[in-house]
Design a protein around this nucleic acid. Structure first.
Lengths: 259, 259
DNA sequence: TATACAGACCTGTATATACATGCTACCATG
DNA sequence: CATGGTAGCATGTATATACAGGTCTGTATA
């Protein structure tokens, strides 16, 4: 019939957004029941199938939980944000490996003018700094050097990083808005090389990561990975790179969504 | 009406399984077209809506790729996408697909002051600009927007990009010294969306690439990839990001090499 | 008091239908 | 020979309807 919505945004999308708005603005709280399909049908003057699709997709996306015969409920933030920037611990566990980490450094450091500008903090303040080595089956696979905005995670220094990674903490304190990565490769500085137990001359893959939450930069991280030990599905035929060349073998799988 | 299927497994599930069986047993090969909704309707004697739901879910799960007006196709196994310097044509051929490209734009553009600084060229000069759509089995999979330093490739405008990609030319004129990537994801601007034949609202994975050769920046490129056609690890439950939020579901696997 | 049961309400599935829009292949016209 | 129109087919969205089955509550019954 297609009576309405000649606009480019489908009706079921509009309904999804409406419900998500309610959730994000806290008019619908965690665990609360959202309007039934019938109610939304009346509210939007659309057919139930259309509402059904909207809510079903929200359910697939983990924002609501549907219970036949009862209703649909706002998913708890934990369910809604199994948040990750896919942290290293998950990666390792997903491969069936054993993850453990060692905190090499955890401190408060004065904010240089450059860093102050990056974090948009007054120059007098300090920020948190941590260096953590992640190991898979006792083999170091990542050195995580991280700077954290104290406004984002005030109790960062008292966190226990043996059970939960910094990424996970970050994801929990506030919804992550944006992440940006820059990939490059370096011959690691000696300290990094030693901490990762790497042979001299072997390159590191470095991921620079910026994490934004609450409209400000929450954290930056520099993640060093031993070139030889880092993942590698193995089957990629080695190419002949030119001098200084960088290769992305694994690829990046990213899903992004805005609303 | 619910005429049939008193069994506990819904009809749309049965259809999904049927298609997945065909795929997993290689009766339907990667990139091949699966039966249209209409055909499946006749085959299973169900309504088109039921088939539509089955195929739509397979699409969400990353097993098939739907193209309005054309059909649905078996998604490439899409193990980690080798996004390195190897250009898209090689990638596609490596998967057994057919690559072709369409030059949307090829021109000489004046150099803005910002770009002049980036390319380290005198402000009066111009540089080359190209927009090329790469397709795998006729499905657009990458939009390559590239700026090329005229000092690096003076005859760029007269090159034939149907047989050789821009990446390949770049690699041939001078040994590549360094490459840097920035990965992020965006909702594509309308023009990009149309060229990639993407639905409204679907995100793009964007790779920004800088290529250095002969001690200068030879080229920059912005590579847009349709989020849905660009793999995304099937079984990662689609997540529900907050407003403007970006999420990395797959993680980044990178190997770097220098010599 | 405890149980059984009937409605009411909710989601789940399925159908038949309709119109919109994207794309392709082919054919007619210049 | 090129070019433009169109028919046909594919998916996308939306509706109205129907029935199935789960869950809850209140009421009637044993």
């Amino acid at each position: 019939m297609q009576k309405k919505s000649r606009s480019p945004v489908p009706l079921y999308e509009a309904i999804k957004r409406h419900v998500l708005d309610q959730i994000d603005s806290d008019r619908l709280k965690s665990g609360e029941r959202i309007p039934s399909e019938h109610e939304l049908t009346k509210l939007f003057k659309v057919s139930r199938m259309t509402v059904n699709r909207a809510i079903r997709e929200l359910s697939v996306e983990g924002r609501v939980v549907r219970v036949a015969g009862v209703g649909s409920f706002v998913a708890t933030p934990a369910q809604a944000h199994p948040l990750e920037l896919r942290n290293i611990a998950d990666d390792i566990r997903a491969r069936g490996g054993h993850h453990d980490s060692r905190v090499v450094e955890l401190s408060e450091v004065p904010l240089g003018s450059e860093a102050a500008r990056t974090f948009d903090l007054p120059p007098g303040r300090s920020m948190f700094h941590s260096v953590i080595v992640h190991a898979e089956n006792s083999l170091p696979v990542q050195l995580e050097e991280r700077y954290v905005n104290p406004q984002a995670v005030p109790d960062y220094l008292s966190l226990d990083f043996t059970k939960t990674t910094a990424s996970e903490y970050l994801a929990h304190v506030a919804p992550i808005q944006e992440v940006e990565h820059v990939v490059h490769a370096v011959i690691p500085p000696p300290r990094v090389r030693r901490l990762l137990k790497m042979p001299v001359g072997e390159p590191c893959l470095v991921l620079l990561r910026w994490v934004w939450a609450r409209d400000s930069l929450a954290s930056t991280a520099r993640l060093y990975h031993p070139g030889s030990r880092y993942r590698l599905g193995g089957r990629f035929a080695p190419m002949a790179p030119s001098r200084g060349q960088l290769r992305l073998v694994g690829g990046t799988h990213v899903q992004a969504k805005t609303r």
